[in-house]
Nucleic acid binder design. Structure first.
Lengths: 157, 157
DNA sequence: GCTTGAACCTCTAGTTGCTACAGGGATTAG
DNA sequence: CTAATCCCTGTAGCAACTAGAGGTTCAAGC
């Protein structure tokens, strides 16, 4: 992906790293980090050497932040970006990627839903009681959770 | 929390760090790490200096792993354990904890559910197509996600 | 009772994904 | 033109583990 000042829509003047970060919900340090590890291309520079960005990069960074927020690892994001950068490729890889992550996402969802239910129950029923009657602690101690709903998951690779 | 060889049920002989780890779905290194940072008490030792554990610790470690898996930070887990260790305490703190985390958990749930739907759609519809028609990449690029479903979340404090 | 191999010990260093300085230069509003 | 703000590079720190080096202990089989 390269910078393109002649983009038809919303081209405007290039923006600085701070604005880019603000638009995508992260910090300038994070942007520089992504550039360093190659998720973002080397930015164009002003006369004085400061980074200048166009809309393409806002979109790319937004993509990265969403994918990270969904729990994809940096390496998984790198894969996704490679696919997004080559839209003429057949879909097989994205498809395989989806299959690989679907089960993991579903198991996380179920476990999170169980936690939400417990938190909800507590907020509505717990006021004034004592810790011994709080089921959240019981729920977290219950080993059957593992077998009922799949193993502990780490980051998505 | 101290080790108690005289626990009535399932007392049996003490177990080593490897068995403890296996029972709780983590590695010996992680157990030693938790001991070092004070989530687990200093373990009893064999004559030769190896760690020996009783059922209490299996339960405590299971609790910790579940809480971590649900996305609670180590410091959040420390809070929860403090509450679990003092069941005579009034419930207020656990209640406050629940309130504080409920919104975060719900927003994560919604975003994860959106991702699951996309992954599912892809797995069923995408075979044989090309990347340009894969909506997962579109969805991840769409900034409206942020405003519709809450901001990007980090670890739960 | 002895051997042997797996499991364990401590200590240190590496990993991932950022985040926070320090010590300086660039840009821009007034 | 100057002050405030932004940005630069480089390094170091953080959370939450994970992996190794180099040595010790345990327990099962003979």
């Amino acid at each position: 992906m390269t910078e393109d000042a002649t983009h038809p829509t919303t081209a405007g003047p290039p923006i600085g790293i701070g604005d880019l970060a603000r638009h995508s919900g992260c910090k300038p340090e994070t942007v520089r980090y992504y550039e360093r590890i190659g998720l973002l291309p080397d930015a164009a520079r002003s006369e004085g050497g400061q980074r200048r960005y166009y809309q393409r990069t806002v979109r790319r960074l937004t993509f990265i932040r969403h994918a990270r927020d969904f729990g994809f690892s940096i390496e998984a994001v790198r894969e996704l970006l490679k696919m997004a950068d080559h839209p003429e490729m057949p879909c097989d890889e994205v498809d395989a990627f989806a299959k690989h992550h679907l089960a993991e996402v579903e198991s996380r969802l179920q476990r999170l839903a169980a936690l939400r239910d417990e938190l909800k129950r507590m907020v509505t029923q717990c006021a004034g009681g004592r810790v011994e009657s709080c089921r959240i602690i019981e729920v977290l101690s219950d080993h059957r959770l593992c077998h009922q709903r799949g193993e502990h998951g780490g980051a998505m690779r």
